[in-house]
Computed example of a mutant assay.
Amino acid sequence: MDKVKIRGRDYRDLTAVEIHAAGGLISDIRPLPQDDSLPILAPGLVDLQVNGYAGVDFNRCPIEEESVLGVTRHLWRQGVTTFLPTVITNGDEEITAMVAAIASARRRFAPVGQSVAGIHLEGPFISPEDGPRGAHDKTFVKAPDWTLFQRFQRAAQGNIRLLTLSPEWPQAPAFIRRCVAEGAVVSLGHTAADARQITAAVEAGATLSTHLGNGAHLLLPRHPNYIWEQLAQDRLWCAMIGDGEHLPMSVLKVFMRVKGARGILVSDATSLAGMPPGRYRLHIGGEVTLSPQGRLSMADNPQLLAGSARSLLYGVNTLIRQGLATRRAAWDMASVRPSALLNLPTRHGLNIGAPLDAVALRQDRQGELTVLAAYQRGGCVWRDE
């Protein structure tokens, strides 16, 4: 049984510790004399919404299995040790092929099997309305169909862990119950549902709101509306894109205050995350521009976002930099909380019995966190040389 130990300062209170692991699990945590030169140790980040990274698009057929491994390695550099490749609304054959390729990569490559906790299927059972539908192709939007979902799940070898849908369809409550009974987490998103429909979905077992505040009409009634209604549902967790572009800081602050320990961060990263600045053409979105600061916008209208090209780590640093959360709270929103939502072993963080999926960090005077090393099941999978 492999035994390892790493030294650093616990991200929660900066006390110096030596973490011991055996067989990939934390077996002991020993105090050390305080040493501020040690790196900060924190649980690995967990991103529930990764559409692609470094030029790899999980929504473009065919997906090469090796490319899933490449994304996994790129995300380690950003502190992400667990993630869900996200497949959005598309043709039935395309979705089937894409989830099958991701599932095959999980089986073929050990690093992918350890880092990819499942697949996030975002659609095709969403709202057909302009606005809530977002960039999803209306041609392929449809009502929840259990037979079709089972086809997707068989192709995915049971790996569809998270499903985003709109509860405005009459079939939604019964469909949600069947999904939850088979172990899938159901999230509400890209929706124009009313209060009654949202309540019915929660009672059926839906537990999350997908990137709340995005994928919505530009103008909404003052009240009621589907954003307020989801915020008011105590049983719903709230996923937020924390890059400072998709939601104003005031909105992020309100969402965080309302949801408390059920607020989580996602990146919603596209294939242009991790790419150099410039002009690109996406098969969803067309001509886009990636700025040197990482802002992704429509080439012909820079005021309109064309998706996210920033990492989950950037979202964590945004909350810290803006004073919306402490280091510990911001990090938990992107690590142990999403793990808890999916009931992953990593939900226990840096505690005895948990997997040693961790990162070593440096924090500058402004609070900005930089990843120095990433560990998976106790082994160092990346280090900044």
Score class of each variant (00 low, 15 high):
G70C: 15
V99N: 01
I19A: 08
L38H: 08
R327Y: 13
L163A: 01
C61L: 14
W146Q: 10
P124G: 01
D243R: 05
F175M: 09
T199K: 11
V288R: 01
L319N: 06
A269C: 05
A334W: 12
L212G: 09
T82L: 10
H211M: 06
G367P: 14
H348D: 13
L324A: 12
L236A: 05
C238L: 02
T270R: 11
Q376I: 04
D243T: 01
V316H: 02
D332C: 11
T210G: 03
T326Q: 12
A97W: 00
Y314D: 15
T326W: 14
G323N: 07
A172F: 01
G260A: 11
N343A: 10
C238A: 10
L218T: 13
S267M: 01
A329W: 12
S127G: 10
G118W: 07
S297C: 03
G285P: 10
G118N: 07
E93Y: 07
G286T: 12
I63D: 05
R262M: 06
L25Y: 03
G286I: 08
K138L: 14
I241C: 11
R362Y: 15
L342W: 00
G131H: 12
S209M: 08
R73Q: 12
P248A: 00
D92E: 13
R60H: 09
D2M: 06
A156H: 02
A192H: 09
V87A: 00
L38R: 11
F109I: 11
L220Y: 10
V141R: 07
P62L: 13
V316T: 10
A232D: 10
L48W: 00
R9L: 15
W237N: 08
Q157P: 07
E245H: 07
D145C: 05
N51I: 09
L188H: 03
I176F: 03
L252S: 11
V112G: 06
P276V: 06
N317H: 09
P128A: 07
P224H: 03
G70D: 15
A273E: 01
R30K: 11
L296H: 04
G260S: 08
F140D: 03
G52W: 12
Q49M: 08
D268L: 02
G213T: 08
H120N: 07
A373N: 03
P276H: 06
E66V: 14
W228C: 13
V202F: 12
L290G: 10
S104F: 08
K5Y: 06
V99P: 09
P277E: 05
L304Q: 14
T139A: 11
S104C: 12
Q171L: 02
R279K: 15
C380Q: 14
R106L: 01
L163Q: 02
D137V: 10
A16K: 14
H217W: 12
V112M: 13
N351A: 15
D28F: 04
P302V: 12
T164S: 08
S250V: 11
D130A: 05
R7K: 15
L236I: 09
R327P: 14
G44Y: 05
A105N: 15
V186A: 10
R106I: 12
S308G: 13
N225P: 10
G213S: 09
R377S: 08
A97R: 15
A360D: 07
D2N: 04
R321N: 13
L361M: 10
L305Y: 00
F175S: 03
T89R: 02
S209C: 11
C179S: 05
S308I: 06
V258A: 04
A143I: 00
A373F: 04
S267Q: 02
D35R: 12
E65D: 10
